[in-house]
Design a protein around this nucleic acid. Structure first.
Length: 426
RNA sequence: GGAGAGGUGGCCGAGUGGCUUAAGGCGGCACCCUGCUAAGGUGUUGGGGGCGUUUGCCCCUCGUGGGUUCGAAUCCCACCCUCUCCGCCA
C-alpha cells in the first residue's frame, strides 16, 4: 500500500501518478482516504487527551487507596471518562479500518519512466533473436505435443477439468529439465539462494503481495477454516518470507529463486487462450524475488530482467522485452518489463516472464524493513519479482521453435544434459 | 487427533489487579577512571502513532484480537505460535 503520510502531504502528485493507470475510481479513493485521515487524527487528539488524564488519575487513585483515603469520587469521574474513551476508540478503530480497506485497494504509483495508458501503450524496448517465419508444416504445440506423446490434454481435463494439462514421457522430463536448467543458472551464475516454500499460504501472505483483497476470485482457497490459499505464484511465499521482520544492515540484498507449481482460476480470462497450454489453471514456474535497498531497486530490475532473458538466450528462443504501460501493470508494481517469446506455431508473442519493481508497496503491506546501520531507524525495503521463467509457454516455445519438418523436435543444446537425449521423436 | 506446559524489551529472566513510568543480568552505545591488558564507574539503549518541530510533550505496544475493571503483563474468551508426552502417518 501507499504511504499514508505521502498521500496526506503530496496528494496531487500521488493522484497524478495514479492517473497514468487510467482507473477512474482512484482519485475519489484518495480523497476518501484524506477525509478519513483527517477524522482519524481529530479523534486521536480527543482520545489521547482523555487517556493522559486517565493515566494520571489512576495514579492518584492508587495513592489515595494506599493512604487509606476515599477515592470514590475520582473513580466515579473516571468511569465517565472511560466510557468516553471507549466511544472515541470505537470511532478511531472504524476510521482506521476504513482507511486500511481503501489503502489495500489503491494500487502502487508508477515510476516516472512508465508510459501512461493501457496495454496499447506498452513499449517494445529491445528484442533478441529472429522470430521464425511461418511454414506450412509447422504445427501448434497442441497438435505437436499430442503427436509426440508429451502432452495429454484430454486426460488432464478428465481428471481435473480443462486447463489442467498432463505431461507424459519426455514432456514430463522436459519440464523437469527446464526447471533444473533455470534454477541452476540463477543459483550458480546469478547468485540467487534456492528456496522451496510452502505451496499453501495464509490470507495474510496473499495480502502482503497484493493478491488479496482485490484478486480473491482469481485464487483457489482451501475449504475449511484454515484460511489457506494455493499460491498463484512463488512471488507470494518468497516475498513474504521476511514479512514482519527488520533486517540488519548486512542482510540486503536478498535474492531468492524458487520453483513451485502455481494455481490460478483465471476467472477474468474465461474463453481466452482455450487451446493448448497457453493459459492453464496449474503450471510450474521458476520465480526470482529480491529484497533491495530503495536506491538499488531501479538497477536491480534491469539486472533481474537480464537474468530472465539469459534463460531464453540459453535456450536460443527469440523474444522481445516490453515496458508495460501503467494501466497494464499489476497493482503492486511500480514498473514492469514483460518478456515475450515467439511462438511460431501459434504465431504470437507469448508472455513468459513478468519482472516488476514493487518499490515499497509490498514491503509496507508485508511489513518488511531494514536498518541502514546498526541502531538506525527501520525503513521499508524494495521488493522485486520476476519469472525466470513460466514453464508452459517455455515448453510451447521449445517445441514449436525446434520442431523439424519430419515431425521431431531437435532440442537446444543446453537441455541435452538435463534431458539425457537430444531429440524428441514421434 | 488427545493430554499438558509455555510465549515478557537485541538476548536471558523476575513479575497473580494500583509500590512496574516492566526489577535484575547480559549485550550494544556514550562518557569517566585506570600510564598497556583485564577489571571498574556513570549514563543510555525497541517499535508505532499524535501535537510542536529548536530543546520537547503525550498516547499505544509484555504473541494477536476482543472482554471485565476507575485501573490489566497480571483476571476472562477466541485465535496464532513453540515445546513435551500419547496416538496416527509419508
Amino acid at each position: 500500500m501507499l504511504d499514508l503520510k505521502r498521500i496526506r502531504f503530496e496528494t496531487d502528485a500521488v493522484k497524478q501518478e495514479l492517473a497514468k493507470r487510467g482507473d477512474p475510481d482512484v482519485a475519489g479513493q484518495i480523497d476518501q482516504v484524506i477525509a478519513l485521515d483527517a477524522e482519524r487524527r481529530a479523534v486521536i487528539q480527543d482520545v489521547e487527551g482523555l487517556k493522559a488524564r486517565r493515566n494520571q488519575t489512576s495514579k492518584e487513585i492508587a495513592d489515595r487507596k494506599k493512604a487509606g483515603e476515599d477515592a470514590g469520587e475520582l473513580i466515579a469521574a473516571m468511569k465517565e471518562v472511560s466510557d468516553r474513551i471507549g466511544e472515541f476508540d470505537r470511532q478511531l478503530t472504524a476510521a482506521e479500518a476504513q482507511i486500511e480497506e481503501l489503502l489495500l485497494l489503491i494500487p502502487n504509483t508508477p515510476l516516472p519512466e512508465v508510459p501512461a495508458g493501457d496495454e496499447s501503450a506498452n513499449e517494445s524496448i529491445r528484442s533478441w533473436g529472429e522470430p521464425l517465419s511461418a511454414a506450412p508444416w509447422r504445427k501448434p504445440h497442441w497438435e505437436l505435443g499430442v503427436e509426440l506423446s508429451v502432452l495429454d490434454l484430454e486426460r488432464g481435463a478428465r481428471l481435473s477439468g480443462s486447463g489442467f494439462p498432463v505431461y507424459t514421457g519426455l514432456g514430463a522430463r522436459l519440464q523437469r529439465a527446464l526447471v533444473n536448467l533455470m534454477v541452476d543458472t540463477h543459483v550458480r551464475e546469478h547468485g540467487y539462494r534456492e528456496v522451496t516454500p510452502p505451496y499453501l499460504v495464509r490470507g495474510q501472505a496473499m495480502r502482503g503481495t497484493g493478491q488479496l483483497p482485490k484478486l480473491a476470485d482469481d485464487a483457489y482457497q482451501v475449504a475449511g477454516d484454515d484460511d489457506l490459499w494455493l499460491i498463484p505464484t512463488a512471488e507470494v511465499p518468497l516475498t513474504n518470507l521476511h514479512g514482519g521482520e527488520v533486517l540488519g544492515p548486512d542482510d540486503l540484498p536478498r535474492r531468492f529463486v524458487g520453483y513451485t507449481p502455481c494455481f490460478r482460476r483465471e476467472a477474468g480470462a474465461a474463453g481466452r487462450d482455450t487451446r493448448g497450454i497457453i493459459r492453464v489453471h496449474q503450471f510450474d514456474k521458476v520465480e526470482m524475488v529480491r529484497l533491495e535497498r530503495p536506491e538499488d531497486s531501479g538497477a536491480a530490475l534491469d539486472e533481474l530482467t537480464g537474468h530472465a532473458e539469459r534463460i531464453l538466450q540459453t535456450l536460443g528462443l527469440a523474444y522481445r522485452v516490453m515496458l508495460l504501460a501503467a494501466g497494464d501493470m499489476a497493482g503492486s508494481s511500480a514498473m514492469t518489463y514483460d518478456l515475450e517469446v515467439w511462438s511460431p506455431g501459434v504465431e504470437r508473442w507469448l508472455e513468459v516472464s513478468s519482472c516488476s519493481n514493487c518499490t515499497d508497496y509490498q514491503a509496507r503491506r508485508a511489513d518488511i524493513r531494514f536498518r541502514r546501520e546498526a541502531g538506525g531507524k527501520p525503513e521499508y525495503v524494495h521488493t522485486l519479482n520476476g519469472s525466470g521463467l513460466a514453464l508452459p509457454r517455455t515448453v510451447i516455445a521449445v517445441l514449436e521453435n525446434y520442431q523439424r519438418e519430419d515431425g521431431s523436435v531437435e532440442l537446444p543444446e543446453a537441455l541435452h544434459p538435463y534431458m539425457g537425449c537430444s531429440r524428441i521423436e514421434p
